[in-house]
Design a protein around this nucleic acid. Structure first.
Length: 587
RNA sequence: GGGGCCGUAGCUCAAUUGGUUAGAGUACCGGACUGUCGAUCCGGGGGUUGCGGGUUCAAGUCCCGUCGGCCUCGCCA
């Protein structure tokens, strides 16, 4: 070992002992006589002191150190005088008087300094990821990620689950997200696909008798990125046999409790709250609302239909909806100009406009208030339980647009008005999603979750008569407005499976050619089974109180899915392409 | 594929309506300084304003294109 302690170890009790530390030079304070160096590693920061009394050569060497040099120092732990204690550092009661210094590696002048709080733009951070990862904030995220993985493995292990790895090189199944493809050298013209999730493998593991499976599985989806979405991410993948929905929900309740207790030391009440998809869409306009605050959506179709405001009236007459929300005590915080900005904002979600009313002296105050009778103004105020000083917003459009626009507005206002504690974790289930949704472009039904999701037992009859009303035995775990887990009870009967395929327009031949191996497996004694997958990256992000998934991934990709550090993806030799029987039409 | 924001010294930013030699802090280099912890003080070097066109007497500033980063709609079974 090149060191006796880390830079986070030393305390007053070590005073007098001789220690050896290694680390990176974080900051230098050179007084000509005394020179102070903040020495940093992932455990902390320790101040080391170069004293002129320890010899001119050593002193000069100490003074010549610069940011990010890697050094090894041996010295004596000394107590700081009371006035010199640094309360910001856990090691702030001591420093190390250096007796010998070894520069293990000199650093070039870094493009930015991990030791300062001022952050450069993200492009530079990604290009020099090794420097960015030296920052204590990112190191804490990596440590947090490790802890969550460890707690997860411990939890499932304690319940008798087996972690089983599934292939990364698999078969392309064209449904769902776009696949990342890997060409086969030995099968000219054929491709592997990287898994979007281990879905089919884990169901086959159930058939194979591994009735409690989990895996921290890397997944790949070639779709556009977002702040909370990377093309390559990690799922906590879970599947159980001989179970019902309830067993999955309670198993994951237990995991969530285990994680929150393990990371935050907090106990949460179980079971987690459960909501029906339909209710959540009606009350929040989103299937993944942030439940940490209220500000629920309300419908005013009755009032809108009889008011004098043409836009509202004609919307209701054409069978559409007028819904709104009440922003508490926001009337003075949002000027006409900022409301105009909000109007532009909701237009991104298809809304034509945004009607607003300030609540003032028990009535509505707005350019369009005159179109509403005093009774209707009062009725609106009562419906929202609005108080003087509140600000009401309304969107008139179909169910989809009013939901999307108001959900986005609710989310934005909740953040701007600080209606919740950003560090709070609130987890709740959303149940009974529709099995299928109508795809107007392709003129057919699409699976909402995936094609292997089983049908709610009460709704089997509706499959043939009114597919849009059929509920799936599926469930999402929603945390702080993020879809943090999603799963379902699976179909284990090949006949029902084919019924669902028929519904979503997959012929028996297509099903055989794409998923034949799964369908075949289901014919050889498939137990009833169900499962779920949690987005590990998002969980780490939420525990970190962060809203950027890149900060919890060691080597993330940019929005254009490239790696600025390595330069991936890159050109390859024509020789490689020839071996893979690939011709490119680029260039 | 669409919408928005951004790109000026190594870094973070400034630069009036288009107007003289593009500034500041920090980092870097040199000097002073024995208890600092965002050390302080003095001095110095450092710029193809992302790139390519265009308008103009004159472009960091206006226009077009392009590259890159971020946010977002679509997309993500």
């Amino acid at each position: 070992m090149l060191r006796s302690h880390t830079c986070g170890d030393l305390r007053r009790e070590h005073v007098g002992s001789t220690v050896t530390l290694c680390g990176w030079v974080s900051r230098c304070r050179d007084h000509g006589g005394l020179a102070f160096i903040d020495l940093r590693d992932r455990y902390g920061i320790t101040q080391v002191v170069f004293h002129p009394g320890e010899g001119a050569t050593l002193h000069e060497e100490g003074r010549s150190l610069r940011s990010e040099d890697v050094i090894q120092v041996t010295g004596v732990v000394e107590a700081r005088a009371e006035k010199d204690v640094n309360p910001k550092l856990p090691t702030g009661q001591i420093d190390v008087r250096v007796k010998t210094l070894k520069v293990l590696n000199k650093s070039k002048t870094p493009p930015f300094e991990p030791g300062t709080s001022e952050l450069p733009n993200e492009e530079l951070r990604l290009r020099y990821r090794f420097l960015d990862l030296r920052r204590p904030a990112l190191q804490q995220n990596m440590i947090l990620r490790h802890k969550i993985s460890k707690l997860t493995r411990d939890y499932f292990d304690s319940l008798g689950f087996l972690e089983i790895e599934t292939p990364v090189l698999g078969r392309s199944t064209p449904e769902g997200a776009r696949d990342y493809l890997v060409p086969s050298r030995v099968h000219p013209g054929a491709f592997f696909a990287l898994p979007q999730s281990p879905q089919l493998y884990k169901q086959i593991l159930m058939v194979a008798g591994y009735d409690r499976y989990f895996q921290l599985a890397r997944c790949f989806r070639d779709e556009d990125l977002r702040a909370d979405r990377q093309p390559e991410f990690t799922q906590i993948d879970v599947e159980m046999a001989f179970v019902e929905r309830e067993d999955i929900l309670s198993a994951i309740d237990g995991l969530v409790s285990h994680l929150i207790n393990g990371i935050r030391g907090e106990q949460i009440p179980l079971p987690l709250p459960r909501y029906a998809y339909f209710d959540v869409m009606e009350r929040y306009g989103s299937d993944k609302p942030d439940f940490r605050f209220g500000m629920e959506l309300k419908c005013i179709a009755d009032i809108a239909g009889r008011c004098g405001f043409g836009v509202f009236k004609s919307t209701i007459e054409s069978g559409k909806r007028v819904r709104g929300l009440c922003a508490p005590q926001a009337a003075d915080k949002y000027s006409r100009k900022t409301i105009d900005e909000l109007t532009e904002f909701v237009k991104n979600y298809g809304a034509q406009g945004l009607a607003f009313f300030r609540v003032k002296d028990g009535a509505l105050d707005s350019p369009i208030a005159k179109f509403f009778s005093a009774e209707d103004q009062k009725a609106i105020i009562e419906r929202f339980d609005a108080k003087n000083g509140d600000l009401l917003f309304f969107v008139a459009s179909d169910a989809k647009v009013t939901s999307a626009a108001l959900a986005a507005l609710r989310s934005r206002l909740g953040k701007e008005l600080k209606l919740y504690d950003p560090m709070q974790m609130h987890a709740a289930w959303v149940l009974d999603f529709p099995l299928v949704t109508w795809n107007a472009e392709e003129n057919r039904w699409d699976a909402e979750h995936h094609p292997f999701c089983s049908v709610h037992p009460d709704d089997v009859e509706l499959l043939k008569t009114d597919p849009g009303k059929v509920r799936a035995q599926s469930y999402d775990l929603v945390v702080n407005g993020y879809e943090s887990a999603s799963g379902s009870v699976r179909i284990h009967d090949p006949a029902i499976q084919q019924t669902v395929f028929d519904l979503i327009g997959v012929t028996a031949e297509q099903a055989e050619s794409r998923f034949g191996f799964l369908l075949d497996a289901l014919r050889y004694g498939a137990p009833p089974h169900a499962g779920i997958a949690l987005g590990l990256d998002r969980w780490v992000m939420m525990f970190a109180g962060n809203d950027n998934i890149r900060d919890v991934i060691a080597f993330p990709k940019t929005q254009k899915a490239s790696d600025l550090m390595t330069g991936a993806p890159s050109d390859v030799d024509t020789k490689q392409l020839r071996e893979l029987h690939i011709k490119s039409d680029v260039k």
